[in-house]
């Protein structure tokens, strides 16, 4: 019975492996504030006209490490306390694309594959034989190739676009989880503390139990 189930399980796993989807590209995301700054500037230029980040407020960018004057330049007429809403009203976007462009605040958390998915998607555009745009990762997409990867000629241009996509995704990573750096930092301290405490508790336990002499 056991053997049969094992075999069945193996068979099943093997099948699912062959049916796996297109491989996502690896992303070496960056968390230094220079990359994040490039990322938010690229996002404002390439994405923000249609996509909102309604859970990110302009003042949060100062927390991210951006200079206050740069935030002032990015926000324009918007208040410091205003969320980063798209320039294009949602109704106009629906008219142009048939559906509302999704909010990007949680985008890297809302997709299976996370930042690798978004990165691969941005770089997944190609020109079909009939001249139309296609996307390897999300074929039904209505978004036109925002970074121009499909029309890229030459390695140099491709590398530049890949860098831009990486910056944007690095920023989106921050936007989805602004406290990540703080969390990892705190986590190290907590684990170090727990290690010390647990070691001490173990020693106390040995001490107390060593007092137990059974005949």
């Amino acid at each position: 019975m056991n053997k049969l189930l094992n075999l069945a399980l193996l068979w099943c796993l093997a099948n699912s492996a062959t049916a796996s989807e297109i491989e996502l590209e690896k992303i070496h995301k960056e968390i230094d504030s220079v990359a994040l700054e490039r990322g938010v500037e690229a996002l404002m230029a390439d994405c923000h006209s249609c996509h909102s980040l309604k859970y990110v407020k302009y003042r949060d960018l100062i927390q991210m490490g951006l200079d206050k004057r740069k935030v002032d330049a990015l926000r324009g007429e918007q208040l410091m306390d205003a969320p980063m809403m798209a320039e294009m009203p949602e109704s106009d976007a629906i008219q142009s694309f048939g559906k509302a462009p999704p909010d990007l605040s949680l985008m890297v958390k809302a997709r299976e594959g996370g930042d690798r998915y978004v990165y691969s998607y941005l770089l997944g555009y190609y020109t079909k034989p009939d001249g139309m745009l296609g996307n390897h990762i999300y074929p039904e997409t209505r978004m036109p190739d925002p970074l121009g990867i499909a029309g890229a000629t030459g390695t140099e241009q491709r590398v530049a676009i890949q860098g831009r996509a990486r910056d944007i995704v690095s920023f989106l990573d921050w936007a989805a989880d602004p406290h990540e750096v703080e969390r990892l930092h705190l986590g190290n301290y907590v684990l170090a503390y727990l290690f010390v405490l647990t070691t001490l508790l173990y020693l106390v336990k040995q001490q107390i139990w060593s007092g137990l002499r059974r005949e």
Partner: peptide, 11 residues
Amino acid sequence: RKFLIRLTSVV
């Protein structure tokens, strides 16, 4: 033993 227990309690 006393010292160990006290130290662990403080930590």
